[in-house]
Design a protein around this nucleic acid. Structure first.
Lengths: 193, 193
DNA sequence: GTAATATTATACCAAATGGTACATATTCAC
DNA sequence: GTGAATATGTACCATTTGGTATAATATTAC
């Protein structure tokens, strides 16, 4: 018994996500968001409360549309080496995809933690910890399946791979070539031999 | 034949560096800088021109006081494994040092490249490329000295180590423990065997 | 001492910031 | 159709932003 929303929330959040991703949190103004989302600020505030609220929804959007795709690449691969390779190359795909601003919103936001609420910081840190945990789990499974030597430490290996993934996003932002980053992926895979 | 400056430029820039490092560029206001540097904005503008000018000097300050110390740890080590270990652990030392805000100003600024001038972006990207180049050079030397197998690709190995270094700063900001990060350093060192 | 020059302090400004009051429009239950 | 409830549009606000005009102050060469 009320007026219906005229915009698609998912689409609007996706547009907002791209702006935060490119400019950073504080450097993104409400005016920027109005233009990108194609909405007046009143509609934005009505839907998301305030700027912090927008960002929290954007983080959830990023988790769904970006992180989960990468996770799937790891989980659905036939073996651990293929899985790790697809995970890291998937991150590179996203970085070099013209649809996105390059780098990673989570990495950016973790570095910009001084700008965010505790809730947002918890969310971003959790996404990284989930990545590490997913890797650790997959590596443990690989050990049980005999895909990896028993002496491999799944936990620290997972941390290293997660770190490498974040680091490659940084190098990408510093204009490292795709070829160079692809080669560094191969170096990481050597750890699994 | 003019009034002398009452503040120490190095000290002032160090204070400004800490603020940019913690809050990010756009999120750092001139008022923040006035308080941290202990100066009125007129003195700041007189010395550095504008906010972008301050930041460019801060980057130079970071390069001198932070990056060069890490480079030295790599260059003065007795062998390549010790050098890489000291480089990565040195980065962790800085991250966990209470004197600093955690993470890395260069990594942050590269991620925030949408906020910076081309000059600043060139400077930060160059610092990362210099790191990689320094590593590649040292790895090449290690090969010639027989410290490393000849099949090691110094170039892609350098990229991977530089990436890992940046990535560990990200993980540190996401509250990974020192113990966990130390273990991931050991994983990276396995690449050199 | 004086002139020239650079630094500092006071006070200020236009523009942009995040956010909101309020009127209007649209939907659905009845 | 009517009323309740939510969405949107217009216009606005206090605060903060980066930056500056100007006057006062200190330094050194002469």
């Amino acid at each position: 018994m009320a007026r219906t929303r005229e915009f698609d929330e998912r689409q609007a959040l996706n547009a907002a996500m791209l702006v935060f991703w490119e400019k950073g949190y504080q450097a993104t103004s409400i005016q920027d968001l109005e233009q990108a989302m194609g909405l007046r600020r009143t509609s934005i505030y009505n839907a998301f409360g305030n700027k912090r609220g927008i960002f929290e929804c954007v983080l959830a959007c990023y988790k769904e549309s970006i992180m989960s795709v990468l996770f799937a690449r790891l989980d659905t691969a036939p073996d651990i080496r293929t899985g790790v390779r697809r995970l890291l190359e998937g991150a590179l795909d996203i970085h070099f995809d013209d649809k996105y601003p390059g780098g990673c919103l989570v990495v950016l936001s973790v570095l910009e933690s001084g700008q965010h609420t505790a809730a947002s910081n918890d969310a971003t840190a959790q996404m990284i910890h989930d990545l590490r945990a997913g890797l650790a789990s997959r590596l443990g499974k690989a050990k049980r399946l005999g895909e990896l030597p028993q002496h491999v430490d799944a936990s620290s290996m997972a941390t290293a791979i997660a770190g490498m993934m974040a680091g490659m996003m940084v190098l990408g932002k510093a204009h490292f070539t795709r070829a160079a980053l692809n080669k560094s992926v191969r170096q990481v895979l050597r750890l699994l031999d």
